[in-house]
Structures are given as structure tokens and as C-alpha cells.
């Protein structure tokens, strides 16, 4: 996997086909979370075509995957706008063995409902942080916002979800 150091030390820009083979699956899943599986292929393809045009301008200030996901984020926005797509509902798997006991999980149907009530901005940071497992810094780079804003949005998103789930201490202060 190419990282920041790889790009900066490489004289020529990386081959886009190689990048596509390496990161297509991640980009596709990222897009599927936002525009659904049926549209994810189109969004992913648009992402790599955009990356192909913009690759010469890539300065290596971030990880190449983060850069690609930033492009994918914009492609998904454009696709959702053009096709007037609705938010994709969360799908959960059964908790695997070894996870914390059921008492430390919340009701998944209630969480799906609480998640659906969030604004797009809050949903984006929750997906990137909790589902994609990215750092605040990476989330900020993808969304084009400072890390402090990511932290604030996450805090408010979790407060709102707690409130929707019926926890009285989740009220905003």
C-alpha cells in the first residue's frame, strides 16, 4: 500500500491502474455506505477517473487512500444529488464471538433509527470514524474540515443518538 512517504519519494506519480487495483475495494465499500451498493460502482469509477485527472496535482500531504476517499466523498455527493438518492440505512451483522456481552450493545433497530435522524454532516463523521475506523485527522482531510470540527460533530452526533435511544443523560448541555 502506498503511503505519504512513498509518494513523496517517488519522482513520477503512481500508476492510476495500480492504485485502482489496490484501493478499489476500499473505495467501493466507502461509496456503498453512502450511495448504496447499486450505485457504488459508478461512484467508485468516477472517483478513479477524477483521480486520474488530478493525480499530477497530488502533493502527498495525506495518505493516498485518504486522498482517494476524499474524492470518493465528493463523487458520492454529486451522484446522490444527480440521482436524488436517499440515505442508505445501516445494516448490522450478528455480533461475533468474543465481542462484549449483549448488555454493552444497544438495540440495533433503535440505533438504525437514531442514526437515520442525524444530519448528513453528523452521519459522515460517524461513518468515517466508527465504521471506516479513521482518525479525526483523516476524517477531516476527507471531509475538508478541521479535526476539531470532526471532534465536535462526533460529540454532538453521539449525544443525539443517546438521546434518541432513550438515555436521559444524553441531553445536550
Amino acid at each position: 500500500m502506498l503511503a505519504i512517504g512513498d509518494i513523496s519519494m517517488t519522482a513520477a506519480p503512481p500508476d492510476i491502474a495500480e492504485l485502482a487495483r489496490e484501493h478499489y475495494a476500499a473505495v467501493f465499500r466507502f461509496c456503498a455506505q453512502r450511495v448504496g451498493g447499486q450505485n457504488a460502482a459508478d461512484a467508485a469509477q468516477d472517483t478513479f477517473l477524477t483521480a486520474q485527472r488530478a493525480l499530477s496535482g497530488f502533493k502527498g500531504r495525506s495518505d493516498i487512500k485518504t486522498w482517494l476517499l476524499g474524492i470518493a466523498h465528493n463523487s458520492c455527493r454529486k451522484l446522490a444529488r444527480d440521482r436524488r438518492l436517499q440515505p442508505v440505512p445501516l445494516e448490522f451483522i450478528e455480533p461475533p464471538e468474543g465481542l462484549p456481552s449483549e448488555a454493552r450493545l444497544v438495540d440495533r433497530e433503535a440505533l438504525r433509527s437514531a442514526f437515520a435522524k442525524l444530519t448528513p454532516e453528523h452521519r459522515h463523521v460517524v461513518i468515517l470514524k466508527e465504521i471506516e475506523g479513521m482518525s479525526y485527522e483523516e476524517c477531516g482531510l476527507i471531509l475538508g474540515i478541521p479535526a476539531g470540527t470532526v471532534k465536535s460533530r462526533l460529540h454532538h452526533a453521539f449525544q443525539l443518538m443517546r438521546k434518541s435511544l432513550g438515555d436521559p443523560t444524553g441531553e445536550l448541555k
Binding site: 478499489y24 450493545l105 453521539f158
Partner: peptide
């Protein structure tokens, strides 16, 4: 509460098969 929400969210997956490469 945050931990429980976070743990549950990590169970969210997209089962769509990767295609279009």
C-alpha cells in the same frame, strides 16, 4: 453509553459484493 453505541456501530457492514473493478 458511547462505548455501547460505538461497539454496535462497528457491527454495521455493507454486504454488497465489490464489483466494477
Amino acid at each position: 453509553g458511547y462505548r455501547a453505541i460505538s461497539t454496535t456501530l462497528r457491527l454495521a457492514v455493507d454486504n454488497t459484493k465489490v464489483s466494477g473493478l
